[in-house]
Design a protein around this nucleic acid. Structure first.
Lengths: 334, 334
DNA sequence: TTGACAATCCAAAACGTTTTCGGTAATTTA
DNA sequence: TAAATTACCGAAAACGTTTTGGATTGTCAA
């Protein structure tokens, strides 16, 4: 149905070779024939088939954006969307297509996600939202498919990653809190299965050490990055340590949840207890009080992940681990 | 580099025809040879090339998810993400791949987005986030490429849409406000260029009419769906109509912004002025006071859009306009 | 005038599948 | 026993490109 190179060759009275050459800017085609070919092609509305070209060139210019449990991770949009935009922006501008891949799809079809990618001849893949205990993590680590993980620190010949420098980020947040004079600081962490959680915990501990304070296990509780989780965690924390004066949350959403609980029990923020988040999502700006937080450059994470992948694909660069710095965003909750 | 059907055929001592048939479940291949082929294929780690198959079958099983100005529409994630998940969910489960397309990409390459799609032989496309004045709108309306718009009410032989029943949704919201006794109700609408805005305005007016009230143009102001816009619009509205008792916002984000302004100027919500939003995004639950709103079933919108497209592709169904009902979500801001 | 050389062009193979049209051997039917 | 049917398999064409290795002119220098 669609018009092929053969159609324009016939219409222009040349061979398909010449049409192909004219289209790809080769120099051994006469200026008049080239013009004629281009004119005919435009008239016929010819569009070269990307799939035919992919087949003969043995490269699809197509890279996968793998999102772990895309459909189950609602609420993750506060973080994932910007990253996606960054990834797509850079990839698209470099001429790559990006196809959405969810681990759920692979699971449904009972094939490994690597198989899914090789069937489609994806040239590489960017992985987001994956937990350390995800059964597919092993796969991305061992696969020969060039890939870069976001917040997934695995490094191999074919796999790099980009993530925020979470230990320094957490340290930054804690230093701010400590500088304000807070001493009994609770820490509501995310899932232990998330790579970022172990780093943020470490940053929390390092900052306390540096301040000459020990870490009280009672002050630490793990949750799920979401509002409800933060709310529940805060309740537990406060019942365990009634005299705490500040809480550091490993995500803004949990901080929002925490503030909700604190409001409910009549605690003033930050007078009674100070609240600090992590991520710098838009919601934090809108809360009352506005949330002090540690920023993550989500869009740039996507950009750099794409850059790294492109580097591997086009210039055979070694994958690495890239850490992005984070900044303090001071608002009213501390 | 990757192993082909020819490799499998040679290793199994059969022709490629037989391998193909064995893989596609035809019945004219002996049970023992089939088993042997499958075994050999597994050993060799053979994965049929989707692109070769696409070429010969003349169908890619690939559909585009076109997001208008993907990178410029940050902040739209509150709405778009869920829709994307819905679209991908349904499409993936039906065996379709989905590739991300942004109008920015097309603009960069100076080609129409339709050309972009036909080059890749996308079988259809789902369009989101597009304004009525978008230069690409004409294209999707006239193209022969099967497409369905989300919140983009254009109907043609090849183009359907799904959106919320915004006029009834807005009516619902207004009825709630009117039922509570509010009479001077401001309306902060979204961009006039968005299809949903004209419907919501209409719902606002119809509800007023039904209540025997006229519409005061001073009570209506257009903004941009975002928090800052809502904030500014509220200021303007309040300066123009100091005696208003309630404000209906065409998006939750604008309502958040409005509440922020109202707080700042010392107005109590809902005692001094009641606030109602639209969309039912998660942020509305977390605001203080929690936001009364009209829900949109974003995930389902994606699902149904995918359904409609699949119907067109597989069963040659006529595209239509599907309206989803919306519900009132009553919380504390009214 | 002839050889070399540039400027244009084309035929055919290749990419990895699916499918049509047979072909052979074994089995059944008459 | 001959004919017809069935079960299984293969050769080759096709899908729409790119690219290799010439082929055919025309031009220019010797």
């Amino acid at each position: 149905m669609p018009v092929t190179i053969r159609d324009v060759a016939r219409a222009a009275g040349v061979s398909i070779t010449t049409v192909s050459r004219a289209f790809n800017g080769y120099d051994d085609v006469g200026p008049d024939t080239r013009k004629r070919i281009l004119k005919v092609a435009k008239e016929l509305n010819y569009r070269p088939s990307h799939v035919a070209r992919s087949l003969v060139l043995q490269q699809t210019q197509n890279i996968g954006l793998l999102i772990s449990d895309f459909n189950a991770n609602r609420g993750a949009h506060h973080f994932l969307f910007d990253v996606m935009v960054g990834v797509h922006d850079r990839l698209a501008s470099m001429g790559y297509d990006v196809t959405l891949v969810s681990t759920t799809t692979a699971r449904q079809r009972l094939i490994s996600y690597i198989d899914f990618c090789t069937e489609r001849r994806l040239e590489g893949v960017i992985v987001m939202g994956m937990r350390l205990d995800d059964p597919y993590m092993q796969e991305v680590a061992e696969a020969k498919l060039p890939s870069v993980g976001i917040d997934l620190p695995i490094l191999s010949r074919y796999c790099g990653y980009v993530m925020t420098d979470n230990v320094n980020g957490a340290k930054l947040g804690m230093q701010h809190l400590l500088g304000k004079g807070y001493r009994r600081i609770g820490f509501v962490n995310g899932t232990q299965k998330a790579a970022v959680s172990v780093d943020r915990l470490r940053g929390y501990q390092l900052a306390l050490e540096a301040a000459g304070l020990g870490t009280d296990p009672d002050l630490i509780v793990h949750s799920n990055f979401l509002v409800e989780g933060g709310e529940a965690a805060t309740e537990m924390l406060l019942s365990r340590v009634p005299d705490l004066t500040a809480i550091f949350y490993a995500s803004d959403l949990m901080a929002i949840g925490g503030m909700r609980y604190l409001h409910r029990v009549g605690k003033r923020i930050p007078e009674d207890v100070a609240v600090m988040g992590y991520d710098n999502v838009d919601v934090g700006e809108w809360s009352t009080p506005a949330l002090t937080t540690v920023s993550q450059r989500r869009y740039e994470m996507g950009l750099y992940a794409a850059d790294m992948l492109i580097g591997m694909l086009q210039h055979d660069e070694e994958p690495g681990g890239r850490l992005l710095p984070s900044e303090l965003v001071i608002r009213q909750s501390t």
